[in-house]
């Protein structure tokens, strides 16, 4: 069903401002999810004694976290004022909540990664043993905040006037949670031997399946904005993301337990799929701000429906 092509506008000019966020914010949606996904895999691996999986995932989480912070600061208009985020804690601002989630999440990942980076010959010294004890505790607190880090970015996008993000507010958190789990598990499969990586495979498979289902449900419920999710770069990335995630899921279930190469290929497919999903959703939202129809038509329909309702009751 096509939209009314003659929806009134001012010379076709957009009603909304297109987001000023650039590719860095889209990339952060992926790296933030990856940092959270690998942190829970690392903490779990620590608890069940899977040493190589633990080491790889703490280092992966730390790398993703550092990248995330760099991307976020770089996308500010005044990067040298990044610490102004720490002036207030505002429940009405998902970005403020995210700042504090990352502040709670970061130190544990940092401490755990620091211990993993210590040369083996120093590990028996007492400061190193103290760091190990400390990092186990704060590493676990990071794993507790990780689900928040993996999903709050959905609130960040949904609580905007951007039609392509606001109108998928019901499903976006589940897409992002699944995408983060798939990328975290996928990283574990890529970086650790298959014998140790079974929990990473289960986590990745559940995440990938969840993401695929949530993404399909999201598309089913879309109105006019379905267009921006199908057209252009956003449409291409979302189609590629679905194929890669599906392939990664199949590889995880069928091949990743038996061969290192199969595990690595599946992990790479899941990571790439997760990244493309984030870029696709980000770009679909940006595209939805550039055409006034996506803002005006749903609002006009709501007004008309309300007027009809009032006419019937009155």
């Amino acid at each position: 069903m096509g939209p009314p092509a003659d929806a009134a506008s001012y010379y076709g000019r957009p009603v909304l401002k297109a987001p000023v966020w650039e590719w860095g914010t889209a990339a952060y949606l992926f790296t933030g999810g990856l940092a959270a996904g690998t942190a829970v895999v690392a903490a779990g691996a620590d608890l069940v004694g899977a040493d190589r999986l633990r080491r790889a995932c703490w280092l992966g989480s730390f790398g993703a976290l550092l990248t995330s912070v760099g991307l976020l600061i770089d996308d500010l208009g005044r990067p040298e004022r990044f610490h102004h985020m720490l002036r207030v804690a505002k429940p009405t601002s998902p970005m403020s909540m995210g700042t504090w989630l990352l502040t709670a999440f970061g130190p544990g990942v940092g401490a755990a990664a620091l211990w993993e980076l210590l040369p083996v010959r120093w590990r028996s010294s007492w400061p190193a043993r103290l760091l190990r004890r400390l990092s186990r505790v704060v590493g676990l607190t990071s794993a507790v905040t990780a689900p928040g880090v993996a999903t709050y970015t959905a609130a960040l996008l949904a609580q905007t006037a951007v039609p392509g993000w606001n109108e998928v507010r019901g499903e976006l958190p589940f897409v992002f949670a699944g995408s983060a789990a798939a990328s975290g598990g996928g990283f574990g499969m890529l970086a650790a031997p298959p014998a140790e990586a079974r929990p990473a495979r289960v986590f990745a498979a559940v995440g990938a399946a969840g993401e695929l289902v949530a993404s399909r449900v999201m598309e089913q419920r879309m109105g006019l904005i379905r267009e921006v999710y199908h057209q252009g770069a956003a449409g291409r990335r979302r189609r590629a993301a679905e194929l890669l995630t599906l392939a990664g899921l199949a590889g995880t279930v069928l091949a990743a337990g038996r061969s290192r190469a199969g595990a690595a290929a599946s992990g790479i497919a899941l990571l790439t799929g997760s990244a493309l999903q984030r870029f696709g959703i980000f770009e679909a939202g940006v595209a939805s701000t550039k055409d006034p129809r996506y803002t005006v038509v749903p609002q006009r329909e709501r007004l008309d429906a309300a007027a009809r309702g009032a006419g019937l009751s009155g």
Partner: peptide, 13 residues
Amino acid sequence: ICNGCGYCVSACP
């Protein structure tokens, strides 16, 4: 105070 995060730009309907 503003550090140019750009969130307000996308939050204004």
